[in-house]
Design a protein around this nucleic acid. Structure first.
Lengths: 257, 257
DNA sequence: GCAAATTTGTTCGTATGTATT
DNA sequence: CAATACATACGAACAAATTTG
């Protein structure tokens, strides 16, 4: 009695999926049919399907059936710039710059909030615990598919010193980097990205149309931008689903994609 | 009607976990106790626990109980070099260079294989479909915890032209980049990393001691290194568990960690 | 070292609810 | 509205892993 029956059924179905005998998008037999075919109870068949579900191989749709998941062809996001362009910031300031598919990315209206800095912002921006920060949150789509959720944090002090548009929910078309340099003389000379992976929360699951259980992971990247004095000037947090996104890092001399 | 009972139980337990009322590492009540407490059947309680499991909040241990997961303090891996060091390769050739914890990383013996190039290697290295490649596979530990699985692919041609040690299972201490430059004059001038996330296979789950279901994701990074003519000279594939690793990308002028 | 007790894991049967066609 | 298919829930029994006495 080594492997339990539900695993044997799952492994059998898995082999069929991986050999493409069951093609992506194709419907599996119904639970009743599988029950008869394997001589197990319906509950056991369901355990097998649940196993395949957490493995990300199939998805169930109530009233319809169980289907082999189609792997989406991924978006590609480049985290680095060409050599030399880095220090400037230039107009390629958009956080995640290059995007495949040659579809037009669009950005929602910016939701601006002024709030006491959350704990993780305090540590990353190296500011006083009781400082306020401006957060600018936006949703991004590529074509009609949701692409990323992004929030940038700035010290309120920047707005007080004259960078008013940080408080506006209008997009800063020329890019926040250039705006801050022109307005305040604060120059971004580099940034550090922290790439992490975690499960989505309810808001993210809703926006990206992914299941609320944890079976699809999310990239969460933290970009800390630094000014010429080595001080953090901005934190940008970006969340995007890991099943349809790849991140790219170029170092040194690399041919174009 | 609204939310099913197993979700209500799960949400209740989840709130206790997130408020630290149930601390990381702490044992939950047994299924029997929870059954009595919530007036549900044991199977329903088990559904609730399973939900929390796929969310990565708890883990069950047969014969022992259900426990709140402890979040591991992560290893940190830097994908980029300091400016200027890039083109050289130098002695900082180890794929994932900087590692936190100040524990000594160790590397297993290298498993060397000569094989027809797999499909994905063909496309990434831009070689003929029927070429052979040398693959060098190694396991890495930090202290005693498994850290990464890594495989590098080189065209056999490199060994034929004199870089014999690519075929040896001995480590190339000075680094493959320097070795290839000295031996063949092939100079690495840059690389591109593709960062992806996927579920572990059985071998990886065994090595990293993670569950075989898909609830812990894996980073899989593909590093394509380029020579001075813009041709791919090496592909390195690295796999590491996403629940205990962060990746870092530095661009421009950034203070040290 | 062994046996008992405890705890989770597997499997069945059955009934009813909900979503889709 | 009816048929189909998955979702939730209960109860029961035995198996397997671990700890305790």
């Amino acid at each position: 009695m080594g492997t339990p029956m539900y695993r044997q059924i799952a492994d059998d179905l898995r082999a069929m999926i991986e050999s493409e005998e069951l093609a992506p998008g194709q419907q599996l037999q119904t639970e009743i049919e599988l029950r008869d075919q394997y001589g197990a109870s319906r509950n056991t068949v369901r355990d097998a399907i649940k196993w395949l579900t957490t493995l990300g191989l199939v998805e169930t749709r109530p009233g319809q059936g169980t289907f082999v998941v189609k792997k989406l062809d991924p978006f590609v996001t480049t985290l680095t710039r060409k050599e030399g362009e880095v220090a400037e910031g230039g107009q390629s300031t958009s956080y995640l710059s290059k995007v495949g598919h040659s579809l037009t990315p669009s950005t929602s209206a910016v939701r601006v909030e002024i709030q006491p800095a959350p704990e993780h912002v305090v540590t990353r921006l190296a500011i006083d615990p009781d400082t306020e920060v401006i957060s600018r949150h936006e949703q991004r789509h590529i074509g009609r598919t949701p692409y990323s959720l992004q929030t940038s944090f700035y010290p309120v002090e920047f707005a007080d010193r004259g960078a008013d548009r940080l408080r506006s929910s209008k997009n800063i078309e020329e890019g926040a980097v250039q705006y801050l340099r022109e307005k305040l003389g604060i120059k971004q000379v580099g940034y550090r990205d922290w790439i992490t992976v975690r499960v989505p929360n309810l808001i993210e699951a809703d926006f990206f149309k992914v299941p609320t259980d944890g079976r699809i992971a999310m990239y969460e990247t933290f970009r800390i931008a630094y000014d010429g004095n080595g001080n953090p000037m901005r934190l940008t947090v970006t969340v995007l689903p890991a099943d349809r996104n790849q991140l790219i890092v170029n170092v040194g001399d690399v041919p174009d994609l």
